[in-house]
Design a protein around this nucleic acid. Structure first.
Length: 269
DNA sequence: AACGAAACCTGCGCGC
DNA sequence: TGCGCGCAGGTTTCGT
């Protein structure tokens, strides 16, 4: 479920629901999600209070008393807040709070990751120090420079979190559509104007998607914060065979950089 | 430097 | 009903 708008939606809900909670116990049923040694992880987090939740690109950060827990949901990571109930099949990590509630990390494919860093350094070390600016902070001339020195499909570049962070397969397709640029165009031959269109479109798409609580296209299971409505406003993504909302040409599905890619062959040049 | 494929996992829908 | 394949909102790694 997670691109920037979905992660931001989760962040806002967690910020309301679990700030001020003290972690008194952690259960882990699948170790590889946690980057650190499990005993160290549990010992470090125990008795810390959640101060606030931040987000950088697609990463969530639980800011605690002394440390920061940096979480990536990858494809299917979700959070649930529950009372004292037995663990369900795909819950892999349970943070238990003083008030009897617990935060459950649920992930069918087990791709998610958690890194523990100190408060002093977490922004300056892996993984957060590798991220490019997110769309709202991106400066078109800077992005232009980065793209100009590369020769890859523009879709691949927009998916690269080191260049610009937060966009995934849905929002890249929508950004390219709004920019009238086809996904296979090579980065080194994009003009300044086109890159400006890309950055502005990405900002617009993300802002609107956040307003609507993100998109829910595949996993329609009720989860924390994810009953988004932006899927109703998608122009191309998932719309194969349907008419382009601008020109009526049928939307095509192709493959770019190994990813399913939706495009209007008339609007995007 | 750039590309594709594979890796990490599970579940679903499809054709046979 | 069962099996095999391809697909899925992500990222890293490895070979060419």
């Amino acid at each position: 479920m997670p691109e920037l708008p979905e992660v931001e939606t989760v962040r806002r809900i967690l910020n309301k629901e679990i700030v001020g909670r003290k972690i008194i116990h952690i259960d882990c049923y699948y170790n590889p999600i946690i980057h650190e040694d499990l005993a160290f992880f549990k010992r470090t987090l125990k008795n810390q209070v959640i101060q606030r939740i931040e987000r950088y690109g697609k990463y969530l950060v639980f800011v605690l008393n002394d440390d920061a827990l940096i979480i990536h949901l990858r494809m299917e990571g979700k959070f649930y807040i529950k009372d004292d109930e037995p663990k369900s099949k795909h819950e892999h990590i349970i943070f238990r709070f003083e008030n009897g509630q617990s935060l459950r990390y649920h992930d069918v494919r087990k791709f998610g990751t958690m890194h523990l860093k100190t408060l002093k350094t977490y922004r300056d070390v892996y993984p957060l120090n590798t991220l490019g600016p997110e769309p709202k902070d991106a400066v078109p001339t800077v992005i232009y420079q980065r793209l100009h020195h590369k020769k890859i499909a523009v879709k691949t570049a927009l998916l690269d979190q080191h260049i610009i962070s937060g966009l995934g397969n849905i929002y890249v397709d929508e950004t390219l559509f709004l920019s009238h640029i086809k996904p296979t165009r090579l980065t080194h031959q994009l003009t300044q104007k086109e890159v400006e269109r890309l950055v502005n479109s990405a900002k617009k798409v993300c802002a609107r998607a956040i307003e609507l609580g993100g998109s829910t296209i595949r996993s329609y299971t009720a989860s924390l914060g994810v009953h988004g409505r932006f899927q109703n406003e998608l122009n191309v993504h998932t719309r194969v065979g349907q008419p382009c909302p601008v020109c009526g040409t049928l939307i095509r599905k192709t493959k770019v950089g190994g990813r399913g890619t939706y495009v209007c062959p008339t609007c995007q040049k």
